[in-house]
């Protein structure tokens, strides 16, 4: 309410911007004893998307909890995050974190990027979101088996829609066919994947019953499923999701597939062990803080915190797995 009180509009605006908007005033906040004075968070995407929201939430919560003296967010957009990755690979400031995730793992392969995730120092995985496989309400498919059987039989007559080619949705489609026992060589010839630039656009194709099935993040489709416009066949995590309690996981349905769209942070490759330790401590304290838990609640992100050697191992396994899937769906040679 304080925005308006000052009356004269322009002055009020400047004041309001100054009071609420930005990092300028949060230089205090008990940062005196923080191990990291100035943290720079690089978001390898434009404002508004998932990575940007993660980066900005980290900025706000770390400052609020006094884990760092101050934090800044820089957006470096481009090529599925690989432009930002290239920046971090050459970054020399040890107090830098790059927001990244599964999408970047795929993008590095499909873009044949010079900079690779292996060149960075993994810090932690923070959040994840499950994928959901849906069909239009008019669809004949009642279970995930119906859909997979039809693809096995009729191949490309069955069209599956989702986000960009080589993204999480496309990868899950490939993994599903792998798990159904389809030989690697046949997957590229059987999967008719209709790529859109985002989940919203693919939703239009599903609601108009123009495609056979769709894959996207749970948050993109859940509302439509609850309203009865779409039918959810399966979710992709290890446990069912709260928003869709009646939808089985792929594992329950008999497919050995677990894939979540995870997000995490990495640091420049050049940092030493002590610097890595300081960053890991700060991020671990963030993940355990009340502020971060409240953020997860508010944004409906699943907590998927994983740090240290466990994250290193997870990341290596993830990169190898994604590479084989992308080969099978014919995007990477």
């Amino acid at each position: 309410m304080r925005i308006i009180r000052s009356g004269a509009a322009p002055v009020g605006i400047v004041l309001a911007l100054a009071l609420t908007g930005c990092s300028m005033l949060e230089s205090s906040g008990g940062g005196g004893d923080a191990a990291i004075d100035e943290l720079s968070i690089v978001v390898p995407a434009g404002p508004g998307g998932g990575w940007d929201q993660t980066g900005r939430a980290m900025q706000a919560d770390m400052q609020e909890e006094g884990l760092v003296g101050s934090a800044t967010v820089t957006n470096v957009d481009g090529a599925g995050g690989t432009v930002g990755l290239a920046n971090i690979a050459t970054e020399t400031d040890p107090n830098t974190l790059l927001v990244m995730g599964l999408v970047m793992v795929g993008a590095v392969e499909t873009n044949e990027a010079q900079a690779r995730i292996e060149q960075t120092t993994p810090i932690a995985r923070l959040t994840e979101e499950q994928e959901v496989i849906v069909v239009p309400k008019e669809s004949p498919y009642e279970t995930i088996d119906d859909l997979v059987d039809d693809i096995t039989e009729n191949g490309k007559k069955v069209s599956i829609t989702g986000g960009s080619a080589g993204g999480t949705d496309h990868i899950l489609a490939g993994m599903l066919l792998q798990a159904s026992g389809m030989p690697s060589g046949n997957i590229a010839n059987s999967l008719n994947y209709i790529a859109y630039s985002g989940g919203g656009e693919s939703l239009a194709a599903l609601l108009g019953n123009n495609v056979s099935a769709g894959i996207s993040g749970v948050s993109e489709y859940a509302e439509q499923v609850q309203a009865g416009e779409l039918r959810a066949l399966a979710v992709s995590g290890s446990e069912r999701v709260d928003a869709l309690p009646d939808t089985p996981t792929l594992t329950e349905a008999g497919y050995d597939v677990v894939l979540t769209n995870w997000r995490g942070v990495v640091a420049p490759g050049s940092i030493d062990d002590a610097e890595k330790e300081a960053l890991t401590t700060a991020v671990t304290e963030l993940a355990e803080s009340d502020a971060w838990q409240a953020t997860l609640e508010e944004k409906a992100w699943d907590d998927a915190f994983l740090a240290g050697d466990e994250f290193d191992t997870y990341l290596d396994g993830n990169i190898a797995e994604i590479k084989t899937v992308l080969k099978d769906i014919g995007l990477v040679r």
């Binding site: 656009e201 939703l203 948050s219 439509q224 944004k299």
Partner: peptide
């Protein structure tokens, strides 16, 4: 009416709604 973002601006408005716990969609 459908929760369909058809432009970049619409997608941002959805994010804005979500930050208030409002999920745009058919409901």
């Amino acid at each position: 009416t459908l929760g369909l973002p058809t432009t970049a601006t619409a997608a941002i408005i959805i994010v804005a709604f979500q930050s208030y716990g409002i999920q745009p969609g058919p409901m």
